[in-house]
Amino acid sequence: MTALKLAIQHKPFAREDGELNAIENIEIEIAANEFVAVLGPSGCGKTSMLQIAAGLDQEYTGAVEYAAGLEDRMAYVFQSPTLLPWRTVRQNIELVFSDPQTHADAIASVLEAVGLAGSEDIYPLQLSMGMQRRAALARAFVLRPRLLLMDEPFVSLDELLAARLRDLLKTMLAGNPASVLFVTHDWREALSLADRLIFLSPGPARITGELAVPLSPQQRSRPADLQNFRDANAKFFQSGKQ
């Protein structure tokens, strides 16, 4: 069953020296509970693509189709944690509900799950970057999403911390299965998480290849296995790099 069907023929991108195409002819279908990672160089239009998928950007030609009821169960994780600094961690999470009182238990358990129990009354700027990213994950998962759109959510963390947060994401997804569209420029990150990779060219973004990732959870946690998989499929990764 298809959860999300994304077809973008054309996404204009205004620049001082005229109008450019940011995206050209991208078609992506994501099955229910499938984890798709989109790999592409920085600035190739990956964020635009996610924003179109989320319905945040209407200036494009194409179409986005969601499975029934999915649109209301969608969560977005931004490139920066994007927590409101003038609201506490708990208030930031409460804000995604129109009736936070009735979700007090869900909020408490999601804070527990991301390891922020006890920090809920702290303002975000007093937290470390890793903790802020945990709070952003909590905000997304508290909605029990069926579709997760993630825009390089672990960028600018050191490798150890990023690996820990990837494990946290896997755990959260095990408890709350969801279709995921995950954008990154880090092939290791993509391989350790995704069922399928989609490679994008530098702007204007076009799909240059697709690759299933049939790795076991054990293999995904071993850097050597990831490297071997990459070497075995070198042509995909080469084209994505240019």
């Binding site: 924003q51 989320a54 945040l56 969560a75 977005y76 931004f78 920066s80 994007t82 409101l84 804000l95 995604v96 129109s98 905000r139």
Partner: peptide, 16 residues
């Protein structure tokens, strides 16, 4: 604009 995107992505609505 990042916070505006947040508000739209999580459907805060006008008042919130």
């Amino acid at each position: 604009p990042a916070y505006e995107q947040l508000a739209r992505a999580y459907r805060f609505g006008r008042w919130k």
